[in-house]
């Protein structure tokens, strides 16, 4: 993966230039008649690909529009960290197994290392940074602090984002349900016991009950 640095690029000019690409990449969710499948296939021209040179993109990150120029091979994780200076998501395994890069994409937890930045256009991206509003810490990271649920802390942003996703989708989630939502995250320091304390506190449940 190229580690070419780019400017953060948040000027109005760049934003306006980038937003066209975002509009072109709006996801379609509509159903279509399956019967028309074959009729579609004949004789289309290949659509022009983007890249391998840089492409202007605009991403919606933690409520802000951020623009930059990235090569198509740049993952969402590297775009956030190396191009947009949003460093809450961490690069650890870089192969979709550890969970340190977890971000919310349209409210769903995803591995930012396993998707291209281009794919994230038009979607709402939230990182661990979104869990601090001014001086106020969201309940999930606050519980991590209270129960000392980290050691080196490198996996923590991924854990809090994954945990936030479960509790946001189901505020009444049980500790077991929250734990299931963390199945895709790993803590090499092994602070799971303290995390369990944090989870039980967030679920208003007494441990061992």
């Amino acid at each position: 993966m190229s580690d070419t640095k780019e400017t953060t690029g948040l000027s109005r000019r760049q934003f306006l230039k980038g937003s066209g690409a975002a509009a072109a990449a709006t996801a379609l969710g509509t159903a279509a008649a399956p019967g028309a499948l074959a009729a579609q296939a004949p004789a289309a021209q290949p659509v022009p690909g983007m890249g391998p040179a840089g492409v202007k993109i605009t991403l919606q990150v933690n409520g802000r529009k951020m623009s930059s120029t990235v090569e198509p091979r740049v993952t969402l994780l590297d775009a956030l960290r190396n191009y947009l200076d949003v460093t809450g998501c961490k690069r650890v395994c870089d192969r979709g197994t550890c969970g340190a890069c977890t971000v919310l994409l349209d409210n769903k937890p995803v591995y930012a290392c396993s998707m291209l930045a281009l794919e994230a256009q038009g979607k709402e991206i939230r990182t661990a940074e979104s869990l601090v509003q001014g001086a106020k810490l969201d309940a999930v990271p606050a519980a991590f602090v209270r129960f000392d649920a980290q050691q080196c802390g490198f996996c923590t942003p991924g854990f809090v984002v994954a945990m936030k996703a479960v509790l946001e989708q189901n505020p009444k989630a049980t500790p077991a349900e929250v734990e299931k939502g963390l199945a895709g995250n790993i803590c090499r320091c092994g602070t799971y016991e303290q995390m369990r304390d944090a989870i039980y506190s967030l679920c208003n449940t007494k441990r061992g009950s």
Binding site: A41, A43, A44, Q45, P46, V47, M50, P72, R73
Partner: peptide, 22 residues
């Protein structure tokens, strides 16, 4: 990562055309 192209076709026909070409 190797430098790659990215294409985002909107129809099956367009996608098949790229797959056929490449």
């Amino acid at each position: 990562m190797k430098d790659i192209d990215y294409a985002a076709p909107k129809t099956i026909a367009e996608a098949c055309a790229i797959l056929n070409e490449k």
